[in-house]
Nucleic acid binder design. Structure first.
Lengths: 232, 232
DNA sequence: GTCTATACCACGATAGAC
DNA sequence: GTCTATCGTGGTATAGAC
């Protein structure tokens, strides 16, 4: 029946809501939240300005919806990879745990490559509203990393552990964000978009860094002192 | 004479141009280029909208002027520190070179604490215009790091060296940017604003990471492969 | 319920008065 | 050097078509 055929075509076509989410994901990833106008998004999605208000209310809630669509699958993937490692029934290596944290976030596909960059870039965005939003959506994921890694460094004091975590996030988010800065040094032929290659170099980098010894505070390490001791 | 007194007061007062630069530096550091309006800046600087056009032409050129004011002194400071190390007349340690790269950028003072965060945050900004601007202003500084570090790892192939550089920038810029993300894990009492403390932990982290061995490509490193060892 | 058309005020940029 | 008026565009809100 023609009516059936027509409705099937309608169902196969992507809804306005999803077209808006897809266009917003691409554009926010490329230009940041404040670098994209709602009108750019509706043009790319072939939609009307009011459709954004109807489906998402505000630009910020559209941004949030873009993130939420992928957040749960990513969380699930991390959980699955960690469990698969644990199922081996032996003590895990630090490198394996780092892999479980990074691989799901680094992985690219036709569907979520924009999300990978968006996640990295939005996580480094200074805007207070964006920072609040990221903390709201991803706080559980943030907590997973220290919870799992702390086991490997039980003797380490909190200050050192937190600084190493801080550096860890810098590496993870910067590689995810893939802003092209390294290409200004290494040249445009240097490809940072392949997750398997990234993991090959980032994991040994981070593993060695976490295992690094820090000189005890009392010791007179020349590195910790100021050059001019003039101001008290 | 009252005229003299008045003119001295006038001279002691900061010029509109400098008030605009100071206000813009603070606000851009906090909210990012696109997160601040010119009208916010002129309110904070007690200036008029037209004064921005007169002194800087556009918002983007005001942003550029904010960066340029501090860029040359920072470059000079890096050069000075490197030379002071070289003057010791011996082979440098990797840690000393890292210190020369990081300390001038991390150092905080009443005058440039906002600049430190602005530099880190703007360097991670995805907006194409900002990226172009940063490359234009700081390309020389970018090049200094690989030029100096390459000497320590002459046997390392380019791919590995560039990936390690990529991670290095992630750590440096994220620590500089000081976005407060780590505080959502470590708590608000965790202080990341002290350059001497940051250097104490970041330098051993990076030094160990740079020295880390990466398994050769041909070798069967389990980390480079997919999770399921089913094949073979 | 889903979307279109339109109006509102704040924004960046410009021209020109003072 | 400084300020005002104005233009096109931005995010948001709403009335109403379907």
């Amino acid at each position: 029946m023609t009516r059936n055929d027509t409705s099937q075509v309608m169902e196969r076509a992507v809804s306005t809501r999803v077209r808006l989410l897809n266009a917003a994901e691409q554009l926010f990833a490329e230009y940041g939240f404040n670098g994209v106008s709602v009108r750019q998004i509706i043009d790319a999605a072939n939609a009307n300005l009011g459709a954004v208000t109807y489906h998402f209310n505000t630009k910020e809630e559209l941004f949030k919806a873009v993130l939420l669509r992928r957040a749960e699958p990513l969380r699930e993937e991390r959980r699955r990879v960690l469990e698969a490692l644990g199922a081996a029934g032996r003590d895990l290596e630090l490198e394996e745990v780092l892999w479980a944290m990074l691989e799901p976030a680094f992985r690219a596909s036709r569907r979520n490559d924009a999300y990978r960059r968006l996640l990295g870039r939005a996580s480094m965005d200074p805007t207070p509203e964006i920072r609040r939003l990221m903390a709201e959506i991803y706080s559980r994921d943030f907590m997973l990393v220290p919870a799992v890694l702390r086991e490997f460094f039980k003797g380490m004091d909190d200050e050192e552990f937190h600084w190493k975590l801080n550096c860890f996030y810098g590496v993870m988010l910067f590689v995810q964000a893939d802003t092209g800065k390294i290409q200004t040094i290494a040249g445009n032929a240097f490809d940072t978009s392949q997750p398997a290659v990234a993991l090959r170099y980032v994991i040994p980098f981070l593993a060695a860094a976490f295992r690094a010894l820090v000189a005890p505070k009392s010791g007179g390490s020349m590195l910790g002192e100021q050059k001019q001791p003039s101001d008290r």
